[in-house]
Amino acid sequence: MPETITQEIVVRAFDVIGSPLGVSSDDGQKVHDKIAPLLREGRKVSLSFDRIETIISAFLNAAIGQLYGEFPEEKIRELFSVKDMSPEDLALLKRVVDNAKLYFKNRPQFDQAWQEELGREE
């Protein structure tokens, strides 16, 4: 029997990357490539970090951060969730998410502000 669109699909990061270490952008990309098509279909997705021991920002930027360039924030909030993360990893994910929102909203402004800062020093 086919799944209904309201059923949540659990994507297990460990199974996607085959390792307890989420320490590379390429592995993060593999996770992203599992999640994004499901979100595009309007499915609810929960990303499980069960058995993942270490993650870094580059992994999370590729896996989750880039979703903010592809989907509206509201869509991500509605359809996407994470589970089985330690409080330290949640703290890092919070940084990545906040940064990704700004990255896609204010990219040119970031660089303009720095150019002006350099101009003032010279």
Binding site: A58, N61, G69, E70, Y103, F110
Partner: peptide, 17 residues
């Protein structure tokens, strides 16, 4: 927030972390 990345993957978190 500063990164030389320009593609679809954001950056600029690691060194600040």
């Amino acid at each position: 927030g500063n990164t030389t990345r320009t593609g679809r993957r954001p950056g600029g978190v690691g060194l600040k972390f």
